[in-house]
Amino acid sequence: QTVQFNGLEYHFPNPEEAEKFAKKVAKELGGEVRVKDGRWQID
């Protein structure tokens, strides 16, 4: 599972970890999490 933001990609072994990370980062950055092409993106 991949999380993308600021032009970087973070890879996680399972979707739960990816989701948790994506939501944490979005909260800290005040961004929005969305899934695109099977990847988590933070904008």
Rank of each mutant, 00 (worst) to 15 (best):
L8E: 11
H11V: 10
F21L: 03
D37Y: 00
T2C: 15
G7R: 02
F12I: 01
Q4N: 10
A18I: 00
A22F: 05
E19G: 03
N14T: 14
W40N: 05
G30H: 08
V35C: 15
P13L: 11
V25L: 14
N14G: 06
Y10I: 11
E32K: 12
E19L: 09
Q41C: 15
K24Y: 08
A18L: 03
Q4W: 14
D37R: 01
V33R: 02
A26T: 04
F21A: 04
A22C: 12
P13R: 07
I42F: 05
N14M: 04
E32C: 15
R39S: 09
E28H: 13
A22D: 02
V33H: 03
A22Q: 02
V25E: 01
E28A: 13
W40C: 07
F5V: 14
Q41K: 04
W40D: 04
N6V: 03
F5M: 06
L29P: 01
D37C: 14
R39P: 02
E32F: 12
V3F: 02
G31F: 13
R34M: 10
L29R: 06
V3H: 01
V33W: 05
V25R: 04
R39N: 11
F21Y: 07
G31K: 10
A22E: 02
E16A: 11
I42E: 04
E17R: 02
V25N: 02
P15Y: 13
Y10M: 07
T2R: 07
P13W: 08
K20I: 10
A18T: 01
P13H: 09
V33K: 02
E28L: 14
W40R: 03
D43Y: 14
A22N: 00
Y10W: 11
K36I: 14
K27R: 11
N14L: 05
Q4K: 09
E9K: 06
V33I: 12
N6G: 10
F21H: 03
E32A: 11
V3Q: 00
K20V: 07
G31N: 05
Q41L: 14
Y10N: 01
P13V: 10
L8H: 13
A22M: 06
K23P: 02
D37A: 02
L8Q: 12
L29E: 06
K20A: 13
E32M: 12
E16S: 11
A26R: 02
G7M: 03
G7F: 03
K23F: 07
G31T: 10
V35G: 05
A22T: 01
K27F: 10
F12L: 01
D43K: 08
G30P: 03
N6P: 00
E32W: 06
A18Q: 00
E19A: 06
G7Y: 03
K27P: 01
Q4Y: 14
N14A: 05
G30W: 05
D37K: 05
Y10T: 03
I42N: 04
G31H: 11
G38Q: 03
V35K: 08
L29Y: 12
V3E: 00
N6R: 08
Y10P: 01
V25M: 14
R39D: 06
E9M: 09
